[in-house]
Amino acid sequence: MIDKGMPDAGMPDATGPAGRPVGRRIVLAMLGLGAAGVALGPAVRSGLGEVRASLSRVAPAVVPDDRGFRYFSVVGSVPRKDATTYRLTVGGLVDRPATYTLDQLAALPQTTVVHDAVCTDGWQVDAVPFTGVLLRDLLDAAGVRDEGAAVRFTCFDGAYSESLTLEQARRSDVVVALRMFDEPVPHDSGGPVRLFVAPMYFYKSAKWLSGIEVTSQVQQGYWEDYGYPVDGWLPGEEPVGA
């Protein structure tokens, strides 16, 4: 038999005073703690990174050394490409379309660009060295026609795309990267070849790069279709007068 009783609504459990409102103080304290964490976060972050790095040296299986990178992909699974299967095509509004193998790219003059990789999700990895072929070298080799004004990038994950204006693409800190931290770019970081657009948010640096196409105007990339800025300059990196 169920005892319906009377709801003792609002009554303190114990006889006597209703007790102190500790619960709401705890809620407020949590909010304060959260705000303090947000304010102190940038200082704490580097310390945590060192802790994580040392942990991954002790137990690499438990704490993988991701150097602070987080794995993002817009598709379910990405095919793996290596020196024998990888191809990079350069085409569109150019005089000399070309297809490069990994070895051919590695034989071209290599440049290292060191810059923070900053994700729109809030994480960042400081001073990442990316090494590869300057994008403008590939464009010059292909011979951009007069009507070419922008560059579109496609990826062998089958979905991702990005774009830059021709002016942005010719910058000396935009590199088609083969190496990261002086090692081949790993698959999870967009290897064997990815773009690195140093002065912009990391979503502009397309992973698993497979196609470079010169176009007459900027074609929005994957995330830009969902509201991201087409010119994804990092704060303070936008060229004056741009």
Binding site: G23, I26, V27, L28, A29, M30, L31, L33, G34, G37, V38, A39, L40, G41, P42, V44, R45, L48, T120, D121, G122, W123, Q124, Y228, P229, P235
Partner: peptide, 30 residues
């Protein structure tokens, strides 16, 4: 209750990826 509110607040800050330059994003992520 407090933790859910903190997660909601920081989550909303993370949701709006652009135009909140005054918020230290590293702290929000942390």
């Amino acid at each position: 209750a407090g933790a859910v509110l903190v997660m909601l607040g920081t989550g909303l800050l993370l949701w709006f990826k652009f135009g909140l330059g005054f918020v230290p994003r590293a702290g929000v992520v942390l």
